[in-house]
């Protein structure tokens, strides 16, 4: 991967991976123009562990969607790995998602007719990775999440915690740079929730940038950097001392 030259190196010592410049996202609801994100500036370095918190409708999900290239800002600029990704075509964005971004959702989004292994395989099929390598990666990941003996189970036969672990394996299988988790524990009990957070933190420990959107203050506190969003504006952004 060739890195494009950084256009505006604010701090040359750090390795800035994500930079949002005055990112704006407005929705047309009937006659009204609703602003979900209002000129947000944000720098995220590689390997950070960030929690995004805020009340419902504050724009945190919109921010996550924009970071994940699922949604396009209506204004401003988004630089990912030093490259402006706002102007990419839809298929180029899909390719960027495939190579650099992993998603973990509140409702898992596993395909019910596919086995656990086939669900993890899906991103690799789309990326055109050869079959032998796919099998190998699936095996390694299933082992890492402790579900080797569940490879041929379908989602209906697995518990919520297990489903989310499969979903995390699927998000990690393409070895992305950023993992975006939208309420990853929102649908789980306390115990499996903390297991999931442990697993995500483990991935972060291996150098993966982790961004978690959550309502849960205890989970939010575990991150190294806390971002609060209120009414589409970042109201607080404090870093723990590492």
């Amino acid at each position: 991967m060739v890195h494009a030259p950084q256009l505006t190196p604010r701090n040359p010592k750090t390795n800035i991976m994500i930079r949002l410049e005055k990112v704006e996202r407005t929705f047309q609801v009937g006659d009204q123009l609703v602003t979900a994100l209002n000129k947000v500036d944000l720098d995220i370095q590689a390997g950070e562990y960030i929690s995004i918190m805020g009340p419902s409708g504050s724009g945190k999900s919109t921010l996550l969607n924009i970071l994940g290239l699922l949604d396009q800002p209506t204004g401003g600029r988004y630089m990912l790995d030093g490259k402006d990704v706002t102007s990419l075509t839809e298929d180029e964005q899909a390719h960027t998602r495939q190579q650099k971004i992993g998603f973990v959702f509140q409702f898992f989004h596993l395909i019910p007719r596919l086995t656990a292994a086939a669900n993890i395989e899906l991103p690799m099929i789309l990326a055109g990775i050869p079959e032998a390598e796919r099998k190998e990666r699936i095996h390694t990941l299933l082992k890492a999440i402790g579900l080797e003996n569940r490879a041929d189970h379908r989602p209906a036969q697995l518990s919520g915690g297990q489903l989310q672990r499969i979903a995390i394996a699927r998000a990690a299988v393409m070895q992305p740079k950023v993992l975006l988790a939208d309420e990853p524990t929102g649908n789980l009990d306390q115990h499996s929730g903390s297991e999931i957070i442990n697993l995500l933190e483990e991935l972060n420990g291996n150098g993966l940038t982790l961004i978690v959107v959550t309502h849960d203050i205890n989970i939010g506190r575990r991150a190294h950097r806390h971002i609060q969003i209120v009414d589409g504006i970042i109201s607080s952004d404090d870093k723990k001392k590492i």
Binding site: R97, L122, L126
Partner: peptide, 12 residues
């Protein structure tokens, strides 16, 4: 499912 396929990088 289609949304998921898109999220994990499926092109149109």
């Amino acid at each position: 499912e289609i949304g998921l396929l898109k999220a994990v990088g499926a092109s149109q």
